[in-house]
Design a protein around this nucleic acid. Structure first.
Lengths: 341, 341
DNA sequence: GTGAAAGCGCTAACAG
DNA sequence: CTGTTAGCGCTTTCAC
């Protein structure tokens, strides 16, 4: 049986209250008393029981993380950012992923009830109304890349629209006028914002946009491959493709290669996310960089702030800038440079 | 204030004991009593307090997951497997990643003390002795791809050696005799096993192995790129490269391309992991397939088994098969096929 | 079938 | 500075 605080108190010849104070520095304890306690702790290998502690403090030291069906590098980078920050702030991460449907999210939310001090939720496929209905009222929530909702204390997003606009504007600066876009899955909030950015750029340049040039993808490599096949079959073939994420851009690259279409000469190409692997694609892929791990880090910082400072300092909204990274696939020389719309 | 079991009891006109029994079906309750309880629960929006519950049951409903510094697809696939299985078994995942050093692992292990009913640990850089000293004695542990240790109840691994042997044997069957290998980081257990498999294959074919042909990488794309530069500079240049993971193989592909070396004609290439993105590389990459998510799923199943059945049914050891997947980079036509040594 | 009561291990007043 | 005491919300004997 594991040692309890009572055993420690007995061993150190003090009361349990003193042990508690010594261990949590939650009150004055004479130095030598403290030392006796610490000794007893190590001798008995005492570890405080977290359940008992959080039963009374009403804090669990854990943040819940609810993510949609994410893949590969994006997912691992996000977790890395969350994890590092959580550790730094003294929290653990309770993770639950693959929640695309409202019901799944709700079930997961339910399961975390009372187990966490705060929640990081990413739900790009849910409407503001749905989200609003689902979010718990008693737990601080940080929303990632989701439609804004009043009940969340903090809303973080990457500048999907601005980033897409910047890279497409760059494509236009290479002389392209007929630019196809491979979109994300329908109903995905990020995907929609990137489409908006694409249209912004076209509008800026006085180019009419056409729904025939917006081919639906799924944010997966396979979808990029497929969509590119459609694009190549278009009459009056476009001279450039903007894929709304890198995974699809890689699929596009593969399809272009299979079709014998040279990149960037016969077809310019750009993606979004700037995954680290894209600089090794052939040719290296121009993309939009966004610090995914920072997104995670800020989310945790925001939660931690709310939890320790009690009241939500204020309802907050934060946008992480996304900048174009120019490599060879768009026609640039390969030297990296920043392009800002 | 959230409703407690007392409130529910009052509302339903029964005792707290009955509420508990009704909710946990831990004892006989008359049907209409049960219904009254359920009604009160929904009306009051009652949620049992997990802290209180685990204080007495000594179960938390959570499994801890401790991972090394993993990246990209491997990481996300593993988590997916773990997460799905955990959900299926009614558990939550307490995640902590990026632990390569023994001290980091220890700190994380400490933090999870008492918060979890079991642990999934992946520590490819730690020796059996180090691990043995670190692992808690009172919590069931499943070890993933780690040196076997007696204190773990369950040991799962992928067949690194067999998989490497199979793909290298295949390379040899294409007529290659001089095959370079890009290894993983020194001290990594998986990496070492893959080297052993590579040597096995050479030995099988009566080819002497040479340390000059084993170039150290780091499991990252950048390392594969760098190592390939070294290989291309070798006198009596090899005709094939086995990269011990796909990330490095992709880096190799990029380096080969930059050097104007054709794949597979001038240089055959194969990787390991069979990441989904590799089928879209140019040319598609031959690799070794292993079901990463299944690794995760089995880990959870094993833990869950131990936790519910009390005693560790027996000390177990399980190996997940790894099979060669043949695409174009090794010289095959592109039609997928299985090659088994 | 149901209720009363005794804690699980800890923290937090409140005295001293 | 330290000890006593009263619970946190729940499960679980033990009676009835």
């Amino acid at each position: 049986m594991a040692a309890t605080i009572r055993d420690v108190a007995l061993r150190a010849g003090v009361s349990v209250a003193t042990v508690s104070r010594a261990l949590n520095q939650s009150g004055p304890v004479r130095e030598d008393t403290r030392r006796r306690v610490v000794e007893a702790v190590t001798e008995l290998q005492y570890r405080p029981n977290n359940a008992a502690r959080s039963l009374i403090t009403r804090r669990t030291g854990m943040f819940g993380v609810l993510l949609p069906d994410l893949h590969g590098e994006f997912f691992s980078e996000l977790i890395r950012g969350l994890d590092e920050a959580a550790q730094a702030h003294g929290y653990h991460l309770l993770l639950s992923s693959s929640h695309d449907l409202a019901e799944e999210l709700e079930a997961a939310l339910h399961g975390m009830q009372g187990r966490v001090d705060g929640l990081v939720v990413m739900a790009p496929r849910l409407s503001a109304e749905k989200l609003d209905a689902l979010l718990p009222r008693n737990t601080p929530v940080v929303l990632l890349n989701s439609p804004h909702v009043a009940t969340s204390v903090y809303n973080l997003r990457i500048d999907n629209r601005g980033g897409a606009r910047a890279i497409v504007t760059h494509l236009i600066s290479h002389g392209h006028r007929r630019i196809a876009m491979i979109t994300g899955p329908a109903g995905n909030h990020d995907a929609e914002e990137r489409v908006a950015g694409y249209r912004d750029a076209l509008a800026d340049a006085g180019i009419a946009c056409s729904s025939a040039l917006e081919i639906e993808g799924n944010f997966r490599t396979s979808g990029g491959y497929r969509a590119t096949g459609v694009i190549l079959g278009l009459e009056d073939r476009p001279t450039a493709i903007f894929a709304s994420n890198d995974a699809m851009a890689l699929g596009a690259l593969s399809a272009l290669r299979d079709a014998g279409v040279g990149v960037p000469d016969d077809m310019a190409l750009a993606g979004f996310d700037d995954l680290s692997s894209t600089q090794y694609s052939i040719p290296p892929l121009s993309s939009v960089h966004v610090s995914i791990s920072e997104l995670g880090a800020r989310a945790i910082a925001g939660l931690s702030d709310v939890v320790t400072n009690g009241s939500p300092t204020a309802e907050r909204h934060e946008i992480l800038h996304a900048t174009a990274v120019l490599r060879r696939s768009c026609g640039c020389s390969g030297r990296e440079a920043n392009g800002k719309a």
